[in-house]
Amino acid sequence: MLAYVIRRLWQMVPTLLGVVLLVFLLFHYFGSDPSVIMAGQNATPEQIAAIRQQLGLDQPAYVQFWIFLKQIATFDWGRSWATNEAVSSLFRTRMPATMTVMLPILIMDTLIAVPIALGVAYVRGSLTDRTLMVVTTVALSISFLVYVIVGQYVFGFQLGWFPVQGWSDSVATNLSTYVPLPVLLAVMVGVSPQTRLYRSFFLDELGQDYVRTARAKGMREGAVLFKHVLRNAMIPILTNVGLALPGIFVGSFLIEVFFSIPGLGREVLLAVNRSDYPVIQAATVYLAMLTMLINLATDLLYTVVDPRVVLK
């Protein structure tokens, strides 16, 4: 187990280097000159030269790449160009808001989609199943944007069930007041694709021989579904949740922008609009690291869910 983890961590190094290289090349060769961005419109050539020197842009590319690597390794990205806030503190202060919204979304998505998917997979081909498939197809073809625009208007503005937008310092107030509407809308959007996907997983399992065996020996249907089918379908479901997990750290950009939630997603979008390179670079590199670690954790979880899985 430990050997496996170490080997997997070791294998991440080239990929991570690739991500770093990609980000470096992207911003170094395709991005506009940061010193011009920072100096503003009325800068003299001397000012620009001074900023270039301060940022190390007058150094050869390999020196700059080395500085870049050092920044990553020491978690020291300096300060945001736009707000002069330390990039590390930016992450620390924005992350909680993102998690407060995204974690409930992921949990509710899964808890709602799995039972529905199991149910319709069980009655495959019936009117319920076909109706649900049509409904999800149509639901999927409407843009996420429409859901949030209409949802905010109807639930927040017309009915007044929730505040239209807002945020407070207390987690409890956020969870009880400001989070429900974004979560409700995101879950409405997210449940359709999840249900379709999980339904196909369950259909695969329901056609297996062990299901027929279980029925033949007289097991109750409930036991067949929940003890056998659900357990066996856990691996693809787990993979899917694992794939969605990195997303909860960046958050849904759309939701954070729309509901003015001071999370990481909105911060990164602001950084893109302000050409605030350090923030974007840091977000990209660390999220890549996190994604790889989560993938590893998902693989390790397989052994818990399914004892037959051997890691090698």
Binding site: T15, L16, G18, V19, L22, V23, L26, F27, F30, G31, S32, P246, G247, V250, F253, V268, L269, A271, V272, S275, Y277, I280, Q281, A283, T284, L287, A288, T291, M292
Partner: peptide, 15 residues
């Protein structure tokens, strides 16, 4: 390795 939307943003920032 990089989440899709973040990759799109990184490209959008420079292009």
């Amino acid at each position: 390795a990089v989440p899709d939307i973040l990759l799109i943003f990184a490209f959008a920032a420079v292009m």
